[in-house]
Nucleic acid binder design. Structure first.
Lengths: 189, 189
DNA sequence: GAAGGATATGTCAATAGTGACATAAGAAAA
DNA sequence: TTTTCTTATGTCACTATTGACATATCCTTC
């Protein structure tokens, strides 16, 4: 089983979905830390069905193309449950901006400052967006969020990782821009 | 040009290195946010040489296999310089632990708590390791760190990203473990 | 004397992931 | 009326990355 397979099972454990729906859901909370295009999702669904983790039924629609709606099987749910608490495979982090930082000493300071200010803004915007979603969740899901065995709590916890990730990134970008602009690094930290 | 190509140029802009040396360097500051195995580095060096970004000379060694030491060309340095301040390609983040979190509602709370405590420890350890390197850098490179056009500052800045990344990750893991252990999420945050 | 580790450079098959191509039909906007 | 968007499912070629295989020598440890 691939990690993408578990991402799909994670979505199907909450509700039955078509390949198209799954592609859309990849833009929500799951997609913040794992995403895929439809060209990867359709073949993966076929593999999951082959392995007995999901099944599908065809929904005929008038005035729209037919749908294949997928549902998780008992075997699929079991596989997902045992995967969840297994320590994650250590994967190397790949972050192009931080790699660029390693060569920032070669850059024009003004251009470098602009780069980090721009990236700071990008992460601040993402943070603001997540903040709105958080406020919505805390308003709509107040009860559910007190139970850690609710899917709502799981979505909220994933979002919280997004929030702290973006905040950390934005702060570091600001520190970088300030350091280069000020010409000194140890001064501001 | 690939991102790995620029990672290699970034190392070669500081000193001439062999493929083997580059592989070793990938475990240091550059490797914190971009890494590769030797099986990827050797072909990439060939491509870089093909493109005129690097050149090599063979160093014959007694009692050891011969070396190919690579050096960056003027074209290579130019390419690297213009890449550094270019906005990075947006890449999807892939983090298996945060993906698991999306399905944590299915898990046994005790096993989930153990998972997040373990991961918290891993990140705390990495943080402690980075902290030692930071202390060493601040001691040894005091002067250099005041100039943002020094390679030492660039290494330090990369390390600082590592430090804030690990701190953020460890804190979130602690919040997760505490939330699941306490059975409540909104209480501790 | 044997085994394992470090130095040193490569190839190759398999997997993961992206972007483009392909098709089809209704709805909405220009 | 034509174009564009949304729904809907798929394939295919290419790139990036990993892990295993391959070879050779010296040095250190058992």
């Amino acid at each position: 089983m691939t990690t993408l397979g578990y991402a799909i099972l994670g979505l199907l454990s909450r509700e039955d979905l078509s390949g198209y729906d799954l592609t859309q859901r990849m833009k929500g909370p799951v997609g913040y830390f794992w995403s895929a295009r439809h060209s990867q999702i359709y073949p993966e669904l076929a593999r999951l069905e082959d392995g007995g983790y999901v099944t599908h039924r065809v929904i005929e629609q008038k005035e729209r193309p037919d749908k294949k709606v997928y549902g998780i099987t008992d075997e699929g749910l079991e596989a997902l449950e045992s995967w969840v608490t297994q320590p994650p495979m250590p994967r190397p982090i790949r972050d192009e901006l931080t790699l660029k930082t390693y060569s920032v000493w070669l850059a024009d300071p003004e251009e470098a400052t602009r780069l980090f200010r721009e990236e700071e803004l990008r992460h601040e915007e993402q943070l603001a967006h997540y903040g709105e979603i958080r406020a919505w969740m805390e308003r709509e899901w107040r009860e559910d969020l007190t139970r850690t065995d609710s899917p709502e709590f799981a979505s909220y916890a994933t979002l919280m990782r997004g929030i702290s990730y973006e905040r950390e990134y934005a702060e570091w970008c600001r520190w970088m821009a300030d350091s280069i602009e000020g010409g000194k690094s140890l001064e501001t930290n």
